[in-house]
Computed example of a mutant assay.
Amino acid sequence: MFHPLHVRAVEQLTDDSAALTLDVPPELRAAYAYAPGQHIALRRTNERGEEIRRTYSLCDPAGAAPETLRVGVRLVERGEFSTYALKELTEGRTVEVLPPTGRFILEPRPGHFAAVVGGSGITPVLSIAATLLKREPEARFCLIRSDRTTASTMFLEEVADLKDRYPDRFQLVTVLSREEQHSGLASGRLDEERLTALLPSLLYAPGIPAMDGWYLCGPLGLVESASKALRSLGVPRSRIHQEIFHADAGMEGGVAANTLTTTSTSPARPAGLAGPAGSLPTGSVTVSATLAGRGGSWPMDDGESVLETVLRNRADAPYACKGGVCGTCRVRLLSGEVHMDRNYALEPEELDAGYVLACQSHPLTPKVEVDFDA
């Protein structure tokens, strides 16, 4: 559930981004413990009475009972929440916050790890790298980051501090798309072709396929390009973890949508992406859901997603982005068949296990049963 947290500090990072630090009172610190790479949802009600939620990744090293939560927020054109966060949220004000969630995480362990990030995609990876290097002396981390210019680069000082603190275990590679550097790589976008050529020369040991984990975070184009490049270089899919930033207009950004269909009676992941799904007649679908140990069944209105139907009857149903990105509304499909408009949050093994995103799921059968607690 959401809790009101006070803003301790607002730190300007670039002309269009800032870090927000939120105080966590002692009685809530266990609830707000987080793993490196997780995110929180922030909520406000605008002047029209509409509830607005946005998800932001935590950037500080993870802790079991954090006194503060720190997130990075970048201003997005026509972004209602980011505009509010950067122009109206000031020290001492209060914002409602959902406890941390997300599966884009790396629990500290020995090994060699790397990340390819773009823009604000640095935020969760900063927490991942800092936590790993602090807790695990036998771990190494390589960060390959892409930004437009030096002036637009978020968390520049924090990343430089990691390089100074762990010179033998932290490798930093910076690529600027709109600014020439005096040294290092030439400017330009990190597309699939360039990454395929660059990565083997950047990482000498233990080699690309032998890395213990790759973490990709940023705009869809960069994440897809990096994933394809890694697969072509022999990296197993199980070692590639990704999180997309900027999903669609509702998420203050824009990308194309993936579509797929899944069914509870056929848990194997679909071989390809399904086309647009047809809709069942209005009032012919019943959605059953278990949430916080209580179950219920409700008729679905025309055009609704599973999440929208549940929210009409259970206001406590968890969600954040409604764009298929954050994974907050992940449910297990117990019976029936659904069509997911898009999925940027669930890993293949989660799909194999029968999990779907409630915000993107539209029933293809008269009855659908999901479990939010699974």
Rank of each mutant, 00 (worst) to 15 (best):
T261F: 04
R135I: 07
I105V: 15
A62Q: 04
R93G: 13
R165H: 11
S305C: 02
H241F: 11
T282I: 09
P267S: 03
V10M: 13
L357C: 11
L172Y: 11
L280T: 07
L233C: 03
C329K: 01
P267G: 08
L98V: 14
E243T: 01
A64H: 11
R189H: 14
P110I: 05
Q171I: 01
A317Y: 06
P167S: 13
E337R: 15
F2L: 14
L143S: 01
L69F: 06
D316G: 08
A274N: 06
V95F: 09
A35P: 00
V235L: 06
V255N: 15
R294L: 12
V159E: 02
E158M: 08
E136L: 04
A271K: 15
R148K: 15
A320W: 07
I128P: 02
P348G: 12
R44Q: 12
V370G: 00
G250A: 03
E80M: 13
E138W: 11
T123I: 08
Q360L: 02
R44N: 08
R54I: 06
F170S: 03
L106D: 01
P281D: 08
A151E: 13
D191P: 00
F155S: 03
T286D: 04
P99K: 07
A19Q: 10
E304T: 10
P363Q: 09
P206T: 06
T259P: 05
L190H: 04
C326L: 05
D191I: 00
T259S: 14
Q242C: 11
M154I: 13
R54K: 06
F155Y: 04
L143G: 02
D301N: 14
D16Q: 15
G250M: 02
G221A: 15
E80Y: 10
G188V: 00
D301E: 15
G254M: 12
P206K: 09
A257Q: 13
A35S: 13
G250F: 03
P61H: 00
Y166D: 08
V310N: 00
E224H: 13
V159A: 07
G49T: 12
T286F: 12
G121N: 01
S361T: 01
V331H: 05
V24Y: 04
R342W: 10
S146I: 05
L126S: 06
G295M: 08
L75C: 10
R165T: 15
G92D: 05
